[in-house]
């Protein structure tokens, strides 16, 4: 199993505040790893460290076999929560810019978003914008996909389509790291990592998480119940803010 991205004991502090503390995480080829956590859990900081946009204060980060680098990022597809599209450009213009920036050959616009080619991105619905951002990233066939809240603000149909894309990418051999607040969607991941208070509070399959929370014994075999129990327990242990388990659609931690 080829590991594409790995954090070993990764720690990141901002002054006196520790956003991420001794986190271990690995994303292998062909698997979809879901990163769960409330606001301020440290998810986005961890992603930024994995991408090499933040240097860890402790531990080690490996991206595609080496320390994160510009060359490695060329093989990564990243869709931030803000999507990274230029609202004042058309879909085709955004596509042309990204293709040129990554130094790829001139390719036709992906079929799915071709009907909007002349539309300004700012004029599309959020769901359509997310489809465009996905299409742009997926067209490069990255080895690792990093998706920050990919279905935030998207309707059920759009979400289903995006998850189809995620699964297709993984089936083609890409590793996928996806953050989400939506615990129903999280079940579609091969593996879940629950973060709370900057630490990994639980990891494994959805069933592993539920078992670890001990909520099933109380007759509540629900991932959401398990998640809340784990995060609440972690908050009690660390006594730290940023373990708020709630907040669909809000900024990722």
């Amino acid at each position: 199993m080829t590991v594409l991205a790995q954090a070993r004991g990764a720690t990141r502090r901002f002054g006196a505040f520790t956003a991420v503390s001794a986190v271990d995480l690995a994303v292998a080829r062909g698997e979809v790893v879901g990163l769960l956590g409330g606001n301020g859990a440290g998810k986005t900081t961890l992603i930024r460290m994995l991408l090499g946009l933040l240097r860890p204060n402790g531990g080690e980060i490996r991206l595609l076999g080496g320390p994160p680098s510009r060359a490695a990022r060329r093989r990564v597809g990243y869709v931030p929560q803000t999507l990274g599209l230029y609202a004042g450009l058309t879909v085709a213009e955004n596509w042309a810019f990204t293709t040129a920036a990554f130094g790829g050959p001139r390719a036709p616009l992906p079929e799915r978003v071709a009907p909007w080619s002349r539309e300004l991105v700012g004029g599309l619905s959020l769901g359509e914008q997310r489809q465009v951002a996905f299409a742009v990233v997926l067209s490069r066939q990255p080895e690792l996909l990093v998706l920050d809240e990919p279905t935030s603000g998207v309707g059920p149909l759009g979400s289903a389509r995006l998850w189809e894309d995620i699964r297709d990418a993984a089936d083609r051999g890409a590793g996928v790291l996806v953050t989400t607040h939506n615990l129903e969607e999280a079940r579609q991941c091969d593996r879940l990592v629950v973060m709370a208070g900057g630490r990994v509070a639980a990891s494994g399959t959805a069933e592993d998480i539920i078992a670890a929370a001990g909520t099933a014994a109380a007759g509540r075999a629900d991932l959401e119940e398990a998640f809340v129990a784990i995060v609440t327990k972690q908050a009690g242990a660390t006594g730290r803010a940023g373990t708020d388990p709630v907040g669909p659609g809000s900024a990722a931690g």
């Binding site: 901002f14 956003a19 991420v20 606001n39 301020g40 440290g42 998810k43 986005t44 900081t45 930024r48 933040l54 931030p80 929560q81 803000t82 920050d148 809000s250 900024a251 990722a252 931690g253």
Partner: peptide, 9 residues
């Protein structure tokens, strides 16, 4: 961090 996401991290 100064990005909207990072700000909450």
């Amino acid at each position: 961090p100064r990005t909207p996401e990072g700000a909450s991290a």
